[in-house]
Nucleic acid binder design. Sequence first.
DNA 1: GTAATTACTGGAAACGATTCCTAAGTCTAA
DNA 2: TTAGACTTAGGAATCGTTTCCAGTAATTAC
Lengths: 335, 335
Amino acid sequence: MGKNRITIHDVAAKAGVAISSVSRVLSGHLDVSEKMRAKVESAVAELGYEPDHLAQSLRKGATNTIGFMIRDITNPLFSIVAQSAEHELRKAGYSMILINSHGDLEAEKENFALFKRRRIDGVIASLVSEDSPYVRNTISELGSPVVLLDREVTGLNASAVICDHASGVKHATADLIKNGFSRIAFVSGRKDVFISRNRIKGYEEALSEARIKVDENLIRLGKFGEDFAYEQTKDLFSGKGAPDALITGGIGASTGALRALKELKIKPGKDLAFVALDEWPMFDVLTADLSSVYRDPEEMGHQSARLILDLIAGEATAQAVVPTLYRRRASSKKV
Amino acid sequence: MGKNRITIHDVAAKAGVAISSVSRVLSGHLDVSEKMRAKVESAVAELGYEPDHLAQSLRKGATNTIGFMIRDITNPLFSIVAQSAEHELRKAGYSMILINSHGDLEAEKENFALFKRRRIDGVIASLVSEDSPYVRNTISELGSPVVLLDREVTGLNASAVICDHASGVKHATADLIKNGFSRIAFVSGRKDVFISRNRIKGYEEALSEARIKVDENLIRLGKFGEDFAYEQTKDLFSGKGAPDALITGGIGASTGALRALKELKIKPGKDLAFVALDEWPMFDVLTADLSSVYRDPEEMGHQSARLILDLIAGEATAQAVVPTLYRRRASSKKV
DNA sequence: GTAATTACTGGAAACGATTCCTAAGTCTAA
DNA sequence: TTAGACTTAGGAATCGTTTCCAGTAATTAC
């Protein structure tokens, strides 16, 4: 067992030099003679020495660790974002601590505290809410740079990766209208966050351009997750004035809606036009040709990693915009 | 900005005591007088002091961090395992560093080295391979306890969470046989790991009890992931002697197989009996009533967390067995 | 009243690195 | 030959904690 750890002192003793010299050789830093380099390197090789990351962090004041906080790593979109970010960060010598907030504000707060205690170098987060005083305080007290996913928090020292939902949703809605639908329902998550505002914006723009009046009763914004969408979908079809098309936002919401439709024996693409916002793995294989608005989660991960590394390097905050793409499939029509 | 960090020295100065006393109060350790406790606590509260995790780790020799390494966090089963483990570990005061190995042995090796340098307290891993000399060496040199997911590595200081695949697969196979199928194909990942061996065991037992001879040509084991299963499925139906039932193992393989079937216009449950090993989110909503062998990923995460915490606490290595459940649905028959 | 125990506190040595400062040695120039 | 510049290497301080060791004051036992 590697009970007794090998430290820089062991290397120094073996090579017959001072520990400061060992450190200098290893960091490739200043002027060291060839002889010194050779001595130290052979001692390092012989002992199989590797510097202790902990001690380095303490001394250098940087942990080379990024905190990644999301509501739900189980969400396939987020898991791809996380994977992609991790890949990118690792190439830059950073590790990623992953934490779920379970969509809970209190947990989110504790997570930030944890990040602070761990002296994380930066945070990538998909927040539960947005732009509350609590968020402002927490982030500014954190003392390390932050990249937010799909959130707009102004006047704060944070970069952001935002997706151009409006555009994709607008295309989708316009296409539904073109296909003859006018009672287009919209079911999604919390209304107080950028992603929902931005999606609704696209939806309303398309309606407005087609001179269709917005029916507030068809818009159901409330909570993330399956349950809310399930209930709202059931409700939409419970009375008179049922919609002829349905757009559902977020993977959880789409799932809930599809479950409700299944129970109601309403077939998307047959009895009802349907567009899902965001796809999930095997979307093309498993679903019966559902239309969607797609965004590239790998790109989101990539951009968030890049932005946080830039901030750590001292650059100014920035925004990266990830495009969305309307993918027309069979369910944009009824047959 | 929280530029100037508040240290234990600041607290000690403010309270007019020695830093050792502050530490003693905070750790609730030995005999401290009520007066001392009060002084320190009010100073802590006033300054908003929180101990630096890094310095604590260095001094105590424990980082309260667990490394979690998987082939692919994008796999929804694994992402649930990860989430569940993280939840459990956090309750015990541990954070989780998540790393992907991308199914690459070289990357896996580097990841272990990283864990070692970071002085991780323990590792939960789903290895690419199993029981190679490399694995033995790496794990024993790691110096910290290890919990393996679905792997059997004997004679090593590692606990394991293993699933009783054999039982679920046996039930599934037997049910297919009972329904009149005899040419049951089996497509899954690498054959040199426990999970595949164990699944095949259940498959062969069911055949043997029904006195059906194993047709090696129907068994396709090779690689994890979509591509391999896609190719093999196509191949199975390319010539004569096509199977009348198909069992596909792992989410990746099932996806690949379903994609191939879709292209071949073979409908599971209609033209072919089909059982998927492992489910994915929304399985019931999205798939056309596919049968499956289910195992509870939350339970796997829970058990792996428990086992690693036990090992850290000095207990002996152990195995946790997670049951599997055959879920008969429409695709166990042809119509 | 003295000795022995106990309760509490402060000082200092770790933990394992980096980095600043200084001093010794080498080399060039006058 | 000596002063000055330049390399190179060692010593010590530092990062922010915990914990061991002593030492003082207070309490108890005789």
